[in-house]
Design a protein around this nucleic acid. Structure first.
Lengths: 143, 143
DNA sequence: ATGAATGCAAATTATTTGCACATCA
DNA sequence: TGATGTGCAAATAATTTGCATTCAT
C-alpha cells in the first residue's frame, strides 16, 4: 500500500481500509488528503471543488466510510444543513457560529451519564446523542 | 375569524396569525388541524397524505410558520432525516427510538446555563442548542 | 378591490444508484 | 484475473420558487 505523505489521519484511514480488505485507490487517497487537511468544517461540495477529477459519488462514498470509522463527524447546522468535520475524538459536541459558520469542538462537556440516567428513567436505553451548540464566535460578536 | 373546533394549539396558531395580519385561510386551518392533532413525530409527507387537497408547498409554508412561532419543532433523526413534533414548551429535547422512530420529550434536562458558561469559556456567546438523544424505547428493548 | 395565499409544476439541492469501464491486489 | 471501486449520468428525495388564479378582508 502506498502511504500518502505525512498526514496521520490519512494514514489511519488508509491503513484501516487496507486491514479491512478495502482497496487503497488513487481517488481514495486524494479524498483522504483533501478531507484530513481540513482545519474546520467542510461540505461535500468543498471537497469536490478541490478535486475536480474525482466524481461526486466517490466523495460521498468515501466520506461515508470515514463517518463509519469515526474519523469524520457530521455537523447539523441550525437551518438543517449538513457539514462535516474531522473528528479528533470518539464523541464530542460542536460550537457552531451562526454568523460565519465556523465550527469548534465544545470542550469539557460530558452528558453521557446524566443522559443515560434520564433516558432510563423514561424507559429508554440510551444509544447515542447529538448536541449542537449555536452562538456567536468572538470575531462575530465584534461585528 | 372562524375558529376551528376545539384544538387549543390550532386556536393559538390561528389567532396569532390573525393578530399578525396573516389570513386565516381554509388550507391553513386544515394544515393546523392535521398538525396539532399529531400525538407523535410526523413528516411533511404525513400531513400531505392526510390532506390530499392541500398543496405540498402550502404544507411546507405553514409548518415553517409554526416553527417560527415555536408551536412545532424540528427533530433531526440519527440518519439526518427530518421530522416534526408539536411543541409543548419553548425549548426541550427529544428521545428518539432508533428502532420504531417514536419520539418522546426528554424530561427534566436543562443544560442551558452550563452550556452558556462552557461556550463563554471558549469565547462564544450562546444563542441556542439542539440535543437529540437516541436509544431503544421500552417496547423495542423487548423486541 | 386588492394584496396575500394557494396549487401546481418546474427548479433547486443533496444524495444515491445503475452500469460500463478502469484498476488494485 | 477478477472482484472492487470509479466516474458518469440518471434517479430519488426533500424543499423552494415562479406564477397565474383564488380568496380573505
Amino acid at each position: 500500500m502506498a502511504t500518502a505523505q505525512g498526514n496521520p489521519l490519512t494514514d489511519i484511514f488508509l491503513s484501516r481500509l487496507d486491514e479491512g480488505g478495502y482497496r487503497v485507490t488513487e481517488s481514495r487517497q486524494e479524498v483522504a488528503l483533501a478531507v484530513f487537511r481540513q482545519q474546520d468544517h467542510f461540505s461535500v461540495e468543498d471537497i469536490c471543488r478541490l478535486l475536480p477529477t474525482v466524481g461526486r459519488a466517490t466523495v460521498f462514498r468515501n466520506i461515508k466510510l470515514m463517518l463509519e470509522m469515526n474519523l469524520v463527524c457530521r455537523v447539523v447546522l441550525e437551518d438543517g444543513g449538513v457539514q462535516y468535520q474531522v473528528a479528533e475524538r470518539r464523541h464530542h459536541h460542536h460550537l457552531v457560529c451562526t454568523r460565519c459558520g465556523r465550527t469548534t469542538d465544545l470542550l469539557g462537556c460530558d452528558f453521557e451519564d446524566e443522559l443515560r440516567a434520564k433516558a432510563k428513567a423514561q424507559g429508554m436505553l440510551l444509544e447515542s446523542h447529538r448536541l449542537e451548540v449555536y452562538g456567536r464566535c468572538t470575531e462575530c460578536q465584534a461585528a
